[in-house]
């Protein structure tokens, strides 16, 4: 089983509902965010093109954050979800330095934290909070290893890109373009 996400940049309007949903669902401390909206404007006026992406931890296959963690607090659980055990984290910052997506931050309580793919919801068969609230239904979540899952089908059918593939992390969030 390999959880992954596909996000349709052609449908995303950048409303940041996913950001708020995540902050509410996961009690993200005030002033922090586990997901965010990035916009890329390319071209020259009047031939401009706008791409909007909802970004978060990419739950990579090759995880530099897990590799550099000196205590084993950062680890991969079933389905390839990367999470941090707060009780084992010493707050050294190694995983934060090692993430090319800057997806992690230090919780005010002193441990590294980030997107968990809402593993507490996924365990119960629900979608992550961000996916479930998206008003344009631009996000797909599921098992990439299951060829019949919605996410696997759309990744197989559509053209996609991943963020900073040159960083060698094999990210598992696919941006449909």
């Amino acid at each position: 089983m390999r959880y992954g996400m596909a996000i349709d940049t052609k449908k995303c309007v950048g409303c940041a509902d996913c950001v708020v949903a995540c902050q509410t669902e996961n009690s993200v401390p005030h002033g922090y965010a586990r997901d965010w909206i990035a916009e890329t404007v390319s071209g020259r006026y009047p031939y401009l093109e706008l791409e909007i992406r909802s970004e978060r931890c990419n739950h990579c296959d090759n995880t530099p954050c897990v590799r550099t963690c000196p205590t084993g607090a950062s680890h991969v659980i079933e389905g390839g979800i990367v999470i941090v055990t707060p009780e084992e984290c010493i707050g050294c910052g190694a995983c934060i330095e090692s993430c090319p997506y800057d997806a992690r931050f230090t919780h005010p309580d002193g441990y590294a934290t980030k997107c968990t793919f809402c593993d507490h919801r996924v365990k119960n068969g629900q979608d992550p909070a961000c996916v479930s609230v998206c008003p344009t239904h631009c996000m797909y979540f599921g098992d990439l290893d299951d060829p019949n899952s919605e996410v696997a089908k759309i990744v197989a059918r559509r053209k996609w890109k991943v963020l900073a593939p040159e960083a060698g992390t094999q990210p598992q969030i696919y941006y449909l373009v």
């Binding site: 965010a33 916009e39 890329t40 404007v41 390319s42 800057d102 992690r104 230090t106």
Partner: peptide, 19 residues
């Protein structure tokens, strides 16, 4: 031209604007 912006005002302490 190519401009990349985070528009949902991510301002995680010690991460943004520069790590």
């Amino acid at each position: 031209m190519r401009e990349e912006l985070i528009t949902s005002s991510r301002m995680n302490p010690h991460i943004d604007p520069v790590l």
